[in-house]
């Protein structure tokens, strides 16, 4: 459906992993490596469908409450270390995604990176994408108590940068992005680039192959 000029989205709350960088598989493998360091065998394939949640939220699906309380922080730190070790070899930018973000900014769209990732992962990814200084702002898991699928990251992004839920579009690749956005009445565009099956993304208002295609094919969604 074509949107009128006044209905267009003036702000984008943009996820990182699976949207700007092809990193979801590397995250799953890093979790599997981290679990192994704690004596747990969890295949990356079992973890893959949970990528997109914040680290502590993901852990709750694989360890007991007691293990989570005692070891949760250490396991999260280990995953970040393992992921950063894999970063150079395994993480690639999606073609055209960074260019689309620059074009959004030139068109006057506020673009806030609203990711559940750790700050050091975000920093490394933005350097890879050469997007430092381009974005309106960044919120990460460090800024909130609960990461996705809770709405805290999107809520914080709206509040911190003075954005309205009515004119913001969350852009993510997982059902957890969609759930987080819908909790606060923000529309969501789901990107298939993250590798999640279509049936998991059906609740999104918009569906695109990736960020580059969203900017090209969904140009009338924006000013």
């Amino acid at each position: 459906m074509r949107r009128s000029v006044s209905d267009r989205y003036s702000a984008v709350l943009l996820d990182l992993d699976g949207c700007l960088v092809d990193s979801n598989d590397a995250h799953a493998r890093a979790w599997s490596d981290a679990f192994a360091r704690f004596g747990r065998r969890v295949p990356a394939a079992r973890i893959r469908g949970h990528i997109g949640k914040g680290g502590q939220e993901l852990l709750r699906d694989f360890v007991t409450d007691k293990e989570h309380a005692v070891l949760g922080s250490a396991m999260g730190a280990e995953q970040t270390e393992k992921f950063l070790a894999r970063f150079r070899r395994e993480v690639r930018p999606f073609p055209g995604a960074a260019a689309a973000v620059r074009a959004m900014r030139r068109a006057g769209v506020a673009v806030v990176l609203a990711s559940s990732a750790q700050p050091e992962v975000i920093e490394r990814s933005l350097a890879l994408l050469r997007l430092q200084g381009v974005l309106t702002g960044v919120t990460s898991s460090e800024d909130v108590e609960k990461a996705k699928p809770f709405d805290d990251i999107f809520s914080r992004a709206l509040a911190r940068y003075g954005l309205s839920a009515a004119t913001a579009l969350a852009v993510g690749d997982t059902p957890y992005d969609i759930a987080a956005a819908h909790q606060i009445g923000v529309a969501c565009a789901a990107m298939r680039s993250g590798g999640f099956p279509l049936r998991k993304l059906r609740c999104a208002e918009h569906l695109f192959a990736g960020v580059a295609e969203m900017w090209r094919a969904g140009r009338d969604l924006f000013p």
């Binding site: 360091r37 704690f38 004596g39 747990r40 070891l71 922080s73 250490a74």
Partner: peptide, 15 residues
């Protein structure tokens, strides 16, 4: 305060 993965002798294989 747990900060990192345990050393080798504390690891155990579990499914």
């Amino acid at each position: 305060e747990f900060k990192r993965a345990p050393g080798r002798k504390w690891r155990k294989k579990r499914s």
